[in-house]
Design a protein around this nucleic acid. Structure first.
Lengths: 224, 224, 224, 224
DNA sequence: CATGAATGAGACTTCATTCAT
DNA sequence: TATGAATGAAGTCTCATTCAT
């Protein structure tokens, strides 16, 4: 692995565990066995590093989602894909997604980097918005409050990054299926859907450790 | 309001918005129109302040939950109360609950304060654990993976603090009812429940602003 | 004991043990069970408190010395008294003398308080200077370097405050006798002297605890 | 001189003159023309700096003493070496020895650094203890109270750092000889000793200024 | 007398970052 | 590339002291 990627891998790990603000360049340097100053040969600034990770993260999410949505016109199908993929991506990339979901506030307000990430996030959320709207318009869904439904379902999916363990009882497939069922139920979908998610289409974040987030072995809520 | 409470109110606000690590004592002092040093007349240390907020927060959550669970032996009833109250508390106290849910990592590992908060959190989660277990044992619920179910449902409820707006379309009552329905469905409850939550039994955090978390006025996912 | 004296007693203890610079008003207040601000009803300032202790200490030393020297014209007699009394005062008032000997540097340079203490110290040392000079002039002593002799002897006497223990093997009387012998030997005194020190003429510092300085029970050099 | 040593030289000077507690990192930085933060590139912490100085100081003292004691079995000889070397080291390194002798209390109680320094000090004092004990056992010395004798003699020797001036009347050689004579007299040594101290075996503290401690030009007791 | 509250200054230390080598 | 050295700003917290109550 080249130095730049090693830095990103360490950064994702530290940012996800301790938070961006609580992670110092020194911590990062120590984690990759480098000098404080050495980091700056591969990284413009601490904030640019965070922005890079978030940008690539969001782009990967959008690309994967669009690939998976292709040729699926039915709203119920599309909603199933949105739920399943968002859940799987969070389960498989807990570090990256925690940073993506939780560190937007660490980007300087007004900076172009922040505006860019917000725009990407909005672009992603549009897939949800339009899917719910079309489902409602076409009579496939019955949704009293679309915003509420969207946010609650997304929270359920993204929450996965906080607790999912590949070595736990539930297979990822089952978790996704369960969440899809819940989602379709909560929009009173007329049709049921049996989704099969092609995991190979999910984004691959090269810095993601593919190691589970630390979880209390007693099975309690993860300590974070 | 006395100075100590004003400090706590400002602290909850800043910790929830910017995070504990990104909030400086100077920020806090500025927010309450005090000197840097004046803060320390009312607070032992920045970390002790966080621990205080979290401790009282957790105790309030546990007390309220136990009051609401009293005299409700049926698992379906109990689960409905757990879901409804956790949701309502997060909706009504978004600042306090965000700090409670997200800043455990900011307490020094090994410190007694951290251990105490973890113990309180575990005590609360026990209500969920036993409820699901009893429901499964008595045949009221059918749950393939109790841990999965518990964590997913809790994530859905706690997520409320990130997006709920009292002035939105959905009333809090409806959100709770919806979540209870989802929860009962996801455990395949034999019985349905129509819950009526007595809001006056919920905890009252004197520092909670009772002002909505900042939400992007365009109705998009909250910025955090 | 009135409050003012309780404060002085605590101050001598803390200043002697931890040093003036390392002792805070808060430490002092805690030691006397008072508020931080309460101290200032009895004391002008931290530095004035130190100056008071040192002034009274020096005056007591001078007065006692002069009383003991009265009616003793012979240089050997006078030197014996100087050695014996300085030793005894340090042995019996270790806290006060440590502060007197070691905290002059803590008085603001150029302040009138500091100048006053320096003048008192010089006045005391004059007794030594003139005694050694007269002894040499009158042929009673043979001293190659009077300054050297004076400073070495005084260092020996004052060192007592660092290690003397009333419950040790050597009685104070024997220590004094021994030191007197060493002193007379080091000035090649023609005459020997058998001194009997009237302890009742020594100064009584009302704040001095009359408790021994803490000494390593293994008998090693005192820790501080 | 490299920066680290310049810092140590300035630290010894300031610690000796003003005391560790009264010396701020800013004072130190100013003395070496550096930024406050620059100091921390060379030093772990203020206390670690003090501990380093004291550790090297004690090790140098022990090493030099052992080298000088080698091949000198006779107690009288050994005592002469102990007195002479301790005196010379204090006379020639007044700054370092003042810090060594007076700042033990500034090391945090219970810290490993403090325990280490105490152990080294005890190791050094063992040379005195055993020498006096052997001299008494073998009938060469007659000592009523060994602890008293040891502490008094050591106080006399270490006191040198407070007043010795190389430009004064008395040569260092003469001071040492005088103190040795006093010491042998005070233990009633049967044999006399004419010691010749090889100064090149004494420790060389690279930070010691080799400038005399500040002395009141009027020749009075040093101001400290 | 005593205290709770407050403060400006300054304590030690870490921060992200730069730059000559 | 990499690093040792350096820095201005800022971090948390304590200082001696004052003052209204």
């Amino acid at each position: 692995m080249d130095a730049g990627m090693k830095i990103k891998a360490a950064a994702i790990d530290l940012f996800a565990r301790d938070g961006y603000a609580a992670t110092s360049i020194r911590d990062l340097a120590r984690a990759v066995n480098m000098t404080n100053a050495g980091i700056y040969h591969h990284v413009t600034s601490k904030e640019a590093l965070l922005a890079d990770l978030m940008r690539v993260g969001q782009l990967g999410l959008i690309d994967a989602t669009d690939r998976l949505l292709a040729h699926r016109p039915a709203p119920a199908d599309r909603l199933a894909v949105l739920i399943g993929s968002l859940t799987a991506i969070h389960a498989l990339n807990p570090m990256t997604t925690r940073v993506m979901d939780g560190e937007l506030r660490s980007l300087t307000p007004g900076s172009s980097a922040r505006d860019e990430i917000i725009a990407l996030r909005d672009r992603y959320e549009d897939r949800w918005r339009t899917t719910l709207a079309e489902g409602a318009d076409q009579g496939d869904f019955r949704i009293p409050d679309q915003r509420l439904t969207r946010l609650a379902l997304m929270a359920m999916c993204t929450g996965t990054s906080e607790w999912y363990r590949p070595d736990g009882d539930a297979s990822l497939e089952r978790v996704c299926a369960e969440f899809v069922a819940i989602g379709l139920a909560s929009v009173r979908s007329r049709v049921q859907v049996s989704m099969r998610l092609d995991l190979s289409l999910l984004p691959d974040y090269p810095w993601e450790p593919h190691v589970d987030p630390r979880v209390d072995p007693a099975g309690r809520h993860p300590i974070r």
